[in-house]
Design a protein around this nucleic acid. Structure first.
Length: 563
DNA sequence: GACGATAGGA
């Protein structure tokens, strides 16, 4: 939890300082993701599309947010292969495959593409490696990223890393707290062929400022000046940000003079940094003056400016005022992002207005955003505040573990599970059901199975839900025989398969296109009075759309069975 | 030409 800093120092003389300076206007560009009117699937299916269309579609697909599934990518490539455009498939790979896999956080897939490079004699270059390294960092796998860099590029010299490669490695390291390693790489560059440029220096200076190591930052600043690489607005913004966060306003003022003397004028980043610094000290009024000033200078406040001011009000417990800023922002045509909601939800939680917090939480998905881990943490914290002395039980832990799995945080989920299991705090089958389900849904069937088989050792009897989760797990992996065995095992142990069991199996058959088996199975299912649920029906319709002949097959088999 | 640096939330 954050508090307003109570550092001394009255009135910040920025406003008078700005008043005389001629600040140039900087337009800021923003990204807009184009809305796809026709789905990717439809586009891929268009058989008449020519080669250029396919290549263009591929380029469009990699820039889409969220990215289309691997299946869609594969379909498009398969389409090209079917039309014998082999060389184009390879070149598409060369251009985008690895990057798109990395963007999808599937570095494993990205590496699986590398043999194609080898087979086709395509040389590795710095760009390929940079993309890979960035992807590995995105998975927070610092060790592998650094190893790839040092082993393949520095030691084996597969290709010469360029400035971007260094920038990527250094940025990856510094963002994860490895400032010293970042600094060492700067020194390595200075001795090597690839000399550091402004980007490299900015990464190092930013890292040092984040650590509050201004002496070192200023030292680097002087070094770059000596090497005739003049600091730019990014350099100054990083240093000013660090100083603002420490409340060193006098030094900030000095740097401002230096900047303006160099004909460098504050941009939207600079103003946001100042606004945030003031808000965090509880000086929202001063922050609003800065905001008015930037408008006068022709720099439009952006979503971050509004968020910073909103957070400033929330920190002082004035969530109503924050809410008014939120409404003003929307009036100005800025679409709130997840930060806006989290700030306001936190504000409501701080004043124990959990009802308002929950109402806002419900608005998030209605307005087209998505709650993230911070949203849930904030609400959890708010709820826990309401119930002082509350002790979590197995159910609470189950909810948290389920939340981890749903958000793809498998390691966190397992770590909490192992901790609780080791403490023998948990002796309820429902808790294990949550873990088994999470593992099955994230493709860790073996681990789910291991836990399932261990249950009797700890004296817990699986219930219908346990069997359903594991059966569904088998079905998701296409292991229909195992799923069927589980169904029979369930019956042997005196637990009747239910609506969910049958639906899981039918979906399994459908996914594997085992129509005959499915139809036979439907007899047993309907015989026991169970029908399809919404998910199964949807899947069935999807299968029928793709191959309408299946319907005849089902009807034919069904009539035979019913005779 | 692709690939890189600065501001906001628990």
């Amino acid at each position: 939890m954050r508090r307003i800093s109570l550092r001394s120092g009255n009135g910040i003389p920025f406003l008078s300082f700005f008043a005389d300076s001629a600040i140039t206007v900087r337009t800021c560009s923003s990204f807009h993701y184009s809305k796809e009117s026709i789905s990717v699937k439809d586009k891929i299916c268009v058989k008449s599309s020519n080669l250029d269309d396919a290549v263009n579609l591929f380029h469009q697909m990699v820039t889409m947010k969220p990215l289309p599934s691997v299946v869609d990518f594969s379909k498009l490539l398969k389409n090209l292969i079917n039309r014998k455009h082999y060389s184009n498939v390879v070149s598409l790979f060369r251009e985008i495959m690895i990057n798109s896999y990395c963007l999808m956080y599937r570095v494993d897939c990205a590496f699986s593409v590398l043999p194609i490079y080898l087979q086709n004699g395509i040389p590795f270059n710095a760009v390929t490696f940079t993309i890979l390294i960035r992807g590995i960092f995105a998975q927070n796998n610092v060790k592998d990223a650094v190893e790839l860099f040092f082993k393949k590029l520095v030691k084996e010299k597969i290709c010469e890393p360029n400035q971007v490669t260094y920038a990527t490695v250094m940025n990856g390291l510094s963002k994860r707290g490895h400032t010293q390693k970042t600094l060492s790489l700067l020194r390595l560059m200075e001795q090597g062929n690839t000399k550091p440029n402004i980007y490299i220096y900015n990464i190092v200076i930013h890292a040092l400022c984040k650590d509050g190591n201004f002496d070192a930052a200023i030292k680097i600043l002087n070094e770059m000046k000596q090497k005739d690489i003049p600091p730019d607005i990014v350099t100054y913004n990083s240093i000013i940000d660090g100083l603002c966060k420490l409340g060193q306003w006098e030094k900030v003022k000095t740097l401002f003079s230096e900047m303006v003397n160099l004909n460098m004028y504050p941009d939207v980043y600079t103003f946001n940094i100042l606004t945030d610094g003031l808000c965090k000290e509880g000086k929202v009024e001063d922050a609003k003056e800065v905001m008015k000033h930037m408008v006068r200078k022709g720099i439009d406040p952006n979503i971050i400016t509004y968020n910073v001011i909103m957070d400033g009000y929330c920190l002082r417990g004035q969530v109503d005022r924050a809410r008014r800023i939120f409404d003003i922002m929307i009036d100005k045509g800025i679409k709130p992002d997840i930060f806006c909601y989290n700030i306001l939800i936190n504000g409501y939680c701080m004043t124990k207005e959990v009802d308002d917090a929950m109402q806002l939480f419900c608005e998030i998905s209605q307005k087209g955003s998505k709650p993230d881990v911070v949203t849930y943490n904030t609400i959890l914290q708010g709820l826990l505040k309401l119930s002082a002395g509350f002790i979590p039980d197995f159910y609470t832990h189950g909810i948290v573990i389920n939340g981890y799995f749903k958000n793809g945080l498998v390691e966190e989920a397992l770590s909490l599970f192992n901790k609780l299991e080791g403490n023998r705090e948990i002796n309820d089958i429902e808790f294990y059901n949550v873990v088994i389900n999470g593992l099955c849904k994230t493709g860790k069937l073996d681990e789910a199975r291991a836990i399932f088989e261990k249950l009797y050792l700890i004296g817990l009897l699986p219930n219908a839900r346990t069997y359903n989760k594991i059966t569904n797990g088998f079905c998701l992996e296409g292991l229909l025989d195992e799923a069927n065995d589980m169904l029979r095992k369930m019956e042997e142990n005196g637990i009747l398969p239910n609506f969910f069991t049958y639906n899981a199996l039918v979906r399994g058959f459908l996914r594997c296109s085992k129509i005959t088996e499915m139809t036979t199975f439907m007899k047993e299912m309907t015989g026991r009075g169970f029908s399809f649920d919404a998910t199964t029906t949807e899947l069935l319709l999807e299968v029928l759309r793709e191959s309408p002949s299946v319907l005849d097959m089902i009807l034919d088999l069904h009539s035979k069975i019913m005779k």
